[in-house]
């Protein structure tokens, strides 16, 4: 049976892994390659790098990190942040990324999702959605690192990107990100039930119960977390053992 995936996420800027709360207040968490290796040894199913570098002249740093990672870490690597053109997708894949995640650019130009998936295959294209609740049972899509309300309904947008050829959705609750209060389970479930492609739950993990809830209550196909792993509160293996003990299929 297909295992539910646990994906540690590394926010990278200027060659370092950082972690913030509600998208602000960054603190240093270490070297990306070293951290990716550690997670591979702990049994992580994938690793995601999000390049949160603001200035374009520092963008190429992520390519070198991806290259170094692909030489040493033999599990799938997703890279996102600053992807605007099909050419950006190709450069990341050529450097050794297995999947590329796009967010703001997909909202500004939905054809990018279609063009990129037609060119490199749906399996390489992840659309990241930053969602924030605006009314009970209603979430809007935000862009530009969470600063800009697009007015788009998250469920409708998820269906649209799936139809355009996205192979997976990385769904982050902005209300929960960095809070350690757990995933927005209603949001996760609404999106996962609405689309036929895999959905990764993200934002708010503070303990192992939250990860299990994301799968069993949120019906996520994969769960993503950052700080609980970076600062040594839990290992990936502990997370998997916890989930397995609750009847969730994992790769141990």
């Amino acid at each position: 049976m297909l295992a539910k995936r646990i994906i540690p996420c590394l926010d990278v800027t200027a060659g370092r892994v950082v972690k913030g709360t509600n998208f602000v207040g960054l603190r240093d968490a270490g070297d990306p390659i070293e951290i990716a290796r550690r997670y591979n040894e702990q049994g992580a199913d994938e690793v995601t790098f999000l390049d949160i570098t603001a200035s374009s002249d520092q963008r190429d740093i992520i390519l070198h990190i991806v290259e170094a990672c692909a030489e040493q870490v033999f599990i799938p690597l997703t890279v996102g942040g600053g992807v605007r053109k099909v050419e950006d997708v190709r450069r990341l894949l050529n450097a050794g990324a297995d999947k590329v995640s796009m967010n703001t650019a997909a909202v500004q130009n939905p054809d990018l999702v279609f063009d990129a998936s037609s060119k490199v295959g749906s399996q390489c294209i992840v659309v990241a959605i930053d969602a924030k609740q605006v009314a009970p049972g209603q979430w809007h899509v935000f862009t530009h690192g969470g600063r800009n309300d697009t007015g788009l309904d998250t469920i409708a947008w998820a269906k649209k990107v799936a139809a355009l050829g996205a192979g997976e959705i990385l769904l982050t609750s902005m209300d929960r990100d960095g809070t350690k209060n757990g995933f927005d389970l209603a949001l996760t479930r609404a999106v996962s039930d609405a689309v036929s492609i895999p959905v990764i739950a993200s934002g708010g993990v503070g303990n192992l119960q939250h990860l299990a809830d994301g799968v069993s209550e949120g019906r996520a196909d994969a769960v993503l977390a950052a700080s609980i792993f970076h600062f040594g509160e839990y290992t990936v293996r502990q997370a998997k053992e916890y989930m397995a003990a609750r009847g969730i299929e994992v790769r141990l």
Partner: peptide, 8 residues
């Protein structure tokens, strides 16, 4: 879900 994505 399709794609079949992950460890089987």
């Amino acid at each position: 879900k399709v794609p079949h994505m992950g460890w089987n």
